[in-house]
Amino acid sequence: MNDLIKKLIMLVITLLLVSAAAFITFQIIPGDPVTAALGTDYTEEAAEQMREALGLNRSLPERFFSWLWGAVRGDFGTSMQYHQPVSALIGDRLAVTLWLAVLSMLFVIVVSIPLGILAARFSGRAADRVITLLSQIAMAVPPFFLGILLTLVFGIVLSWFTPGGYVSLEQDPAGFFSYLIWPAAAVAIPKIAMTVKFLRSSVIRQMRLDYVRTARSKGNKESAVLLRHVLKNALIPVVTFLGMAAADVLAGSIIVEQVFGLPGIGRLLVVSISNRDYAVVQAIILYIAFAVVVINFLVDLLYQRLDPRVRLN
């Protein structure tokens, strides 16, 4: 328990560092945001007023903590392009992206673990070759191109779904998820391929170790050797891998939702970057960074549960 408290403290420190990084990054931008915002209306007075209003005349640490305090309450300031509170802009869009990421991750875990075990169990034989070849190809496809392909084949040629269609979660939950399946597949498939390859080689590596021989010498069936002895060992590195995959899936979701025209956070982010709407960019980056840090934290906990060598050190 003591250990958990230590980890929680580390988590808070990491979150603080990450927010500081997110804040400072956008302070070193060349050019004055006020000058840019005022454009042709620029006068000394107007600029001074605007600085006052935005709190830009205060010191850096002061500004950081007031920004952070705002962020904690969900107040990220006002978007310069939409003239709306940033939190209102992000609100629903964040949920869409998160649902997409969660669904994709679910696909990855549910599909890749059995396939990886299967490939390792029959390594060198037909089943393994087919799985390995397919995953080799799938790994090479960028998620957004896969999204385009899926739209082309299942949306346009087969008409299984309406490209660009969308209903919100409140309106029609079933419809919402049925639209989410395709982009989720586009995000998940390359990751599934990578995870299968990783798990396969992890299992094969474990199968060469001495304890496997011991397990066989006890009179275990081959399937018991694999599932009872090898699997837990082989999954330890895979957990770390899946943690990194989860972060990638989140990033992939942001790109892929452009392909399917989903009203997620990605479109907002890209538009805001193009228009230099830093308040919005900063807020989105902070959300994503927090998500990544929390994922890492959870992976760390899970890792400890699996590996006694780490747990008891």
Binding site: F26, A251, I254, I285, V292
Partner: peptide, 21 residues
């Protein structure tokens, strides 16, 4: 380690949002 846990495309987005496309 900190940088590695973030997907590189996201970090690239951050940098490009500052430097411009």
């Amino acid at each position: 380690d900190g940088l590695a846990s973030f997907p590189s495309i996201l970090l690239a987005l951050v940098i490009v949002s500052i430097s411009g496309p």
